[in-house]
Amino acid sequence: MVFTRTNDASEPTKAGRGSRISSPLPGQVALILFLLVLWELASYYLYNPFWGSRPSLIAQRLWQLAISGDLWMHTSTTLQEAGAGLLFAAVVGVPIGIGLARAPRLARLLDPVIMGLYGLPRVALAPLFILWFGIGLFSKIMMSFTMVLFIFILNVMEGIRTIDKDQLDLMTSMRAGRFYVVWTVLLPAIVPWILASFRIGVGLALIGAVVGELIGSNRGLGWYVESSGGQLDTTGVFSGLIVLMVLAMLANYLIGFMERKIVRWR
């Protein structure tokens, strides 16, 4: 039998593909500027700025607040509350999540309680927390903490659940000690889940802090929004909201950056 060799198919060239994925940043900035311009124009032609303010007024207000030092005072207050609540939730939630994942019977027992607390609209706890913990920082930290805690617990449990059983069997068959397994399998496996919890938690922690401030406080961005609203000062309300939005966005970028640095293997 004679085999004839057909001509090798030529490799498709890769020339058509773009060399790199370009940064989305210029487009994002352009979009935001476009929306701001739209807002500004709308405030002249479509509605009375008393109801919705306008970007130029907000920029002016933020400048004044920055010069007087009030901007930093309010921002740092809210940041401290949300940041402390977030970290506290991580410190408490991660070990609880690990513990529950390793004790499935206990986890089943506690499941209704956890889901009940998780389902509870925790902003409704704010009046109680003011009563219990006072109008200072601590009540807001506790608000942020309760908002975020379950995110850490549930994410860490899920992270441990998704660990490949073959990896654990392999460790067992090679007689790995408990500490070795925790250090080389368990902790690295949950790191991405912890970082994801931080990303989800930033927004929730800010909500907790702001809600606490709305109910009872004398400083912070939530307080500023609340007191501006009381004086029918929509520019003040929007100034506070915009600072909060910028904080959440920056925190998100920071955590995204950390994820790329720490979880390089994905």
Binding site: D166, L170, M171, S173, M174, R175, T184, P188, W265
Partner: peptide, 27 residues
């Protein structure tokens, strides 16, 4: 006694050398 599965069960957060090192460390 060493075991090798159909699934490679590599640790995704360790490099090639790092995964081989697991055997050395536990051996």
């Amino acid at each position: 006694v060493g075991f090798m599965f159909q699934k490679d069960a590599l640790l995704p957060w360790r490099t090639v050398a790092g995964n081989i090192r697991v055997g050395a460390e536990l051996g």
